[in-house]
């Protein structure tokens, strides 16, 4: 219990110290910045408070796109992993393609998606889908195949079908890997959604707000969007952690 408090207290204290140093001009001094270049936390907070409804609406646009894209991308990624497991010969090729896709930067992906999809939301979902697919495919494939060979022998000893083996052995075995991928994907989906909004055919969303405001010297407004994006990321990450803790009670990492 005591150590738990400390593990929370230390980062918290560190964070508060960081914000105070920022507020009272330490960063500005060290980095030779003016407050109009890097607004102080109190200004960001008051700007955010004044524009909260719009910021939340934009946050909703970005996060809903990020989540839908992440769900579609994760499902597709896991399906690719499953296909590669059932049909190793050409499924392996699919895995290589997905891994290669993973290397395409989001800034290159966004214009391509703008060609294929006409609305900002579709473009965003498409970009996030591609970005999330790879992590899930790679982790999912590990989870479906990183299996004690005796476990499969045991299944064969009772004449289990490949489908039964998938259902009762491979899939549950992949759960920790799925959560690992989800934790990676929750961060990258928000990042991908934001970056796609830099380029998307729409004027809503956190990404557009960040880019547009920072370009137009509205630094405090831009930063309040950044704060909203970070908070949304942290909250969603914590949600995944909670779900994981509940779903993986049996896993050694949850002890």
């Amino acid at each position: 219990m005591k150590s738990k408090v400390i593990t929370i207290l230390w980062p918290l204290a560190f964070g508060i110290a960081l914000i105070l140093a920022w507020q009272f001009g330490l960063f500005h001094k060290v980095l030779d910045l003016k407050p109009f270049q890097l607004p102080v936390p109190s200004e960001i907070a008051s700007t955010l408070a004044a524009n909260l409804p719009k910021a939340l609406k934009d946050c909703g646009v970005t996060i809903s796109g990020a989540l839908v894209g992440m769900i579609i991308g994760s499902l597709m990624g896991f399906m690719i992993a499953a296909i590669a497991t059932f049909f190793p010969k050409w499924g392996y090729g699919g895995m290589i393609v997905v891994t290669a896709l993973n290397a395409v930067p989001i800034v290159a992906l966004s214009p391509i998606m703008n060609l294929w999809f006409s609305t900002g939301m579709e473009q965003k979902i498409a970009v996030v889908t591609v970005v999330c697919m790879a992590a899930m495919a790679i982790n999912g494939y590990s989870g479906l195949n990183n299996i004690n060979p005796y476990s499969i022998d045991l299944m064969h000893s009772v004449a289990a079908s490949e489908w039964t083996i998938f259902k009762k052995l491979r899939f549950p075995n992949s759960l920790p890997y799925i959560f690992t991928a989800s934790k990676i994907n929750i961060a990258s989906s928000i990042i991908a959604a934001i970056i796609s909004e830099y380029f998307a055919a729409s004027t809503s969303g956190l990404g557009f707000g960040i880019k547009d405001n920072l370009r137009k010297a509205e630094m405090a407004m831009g930063w309040s969007y950044i704060v909203v994006a970070s908070l949304a990321g942290v909250i969603l990450y914590c949600v995944i952690l909670l779900v994981e803790r509940d779903a993986l009670k049996w896993h050694a990492s949850q002890k």
């Binding site: 950044i226 994006a229 942290v234 990450y237």
Partner: peptide, 17 residues
């Protein structure tokens, strides 16, 4: 968690200056 925050911050500020 910290890495997530830093990543988002980096990306978000990447477009500014």
């Amino acid at each position: 968690l910290l890495a997530v925050i830093i990543l988002i911050l980096l990306v978000a500020t990447g477009c500014s200056s």
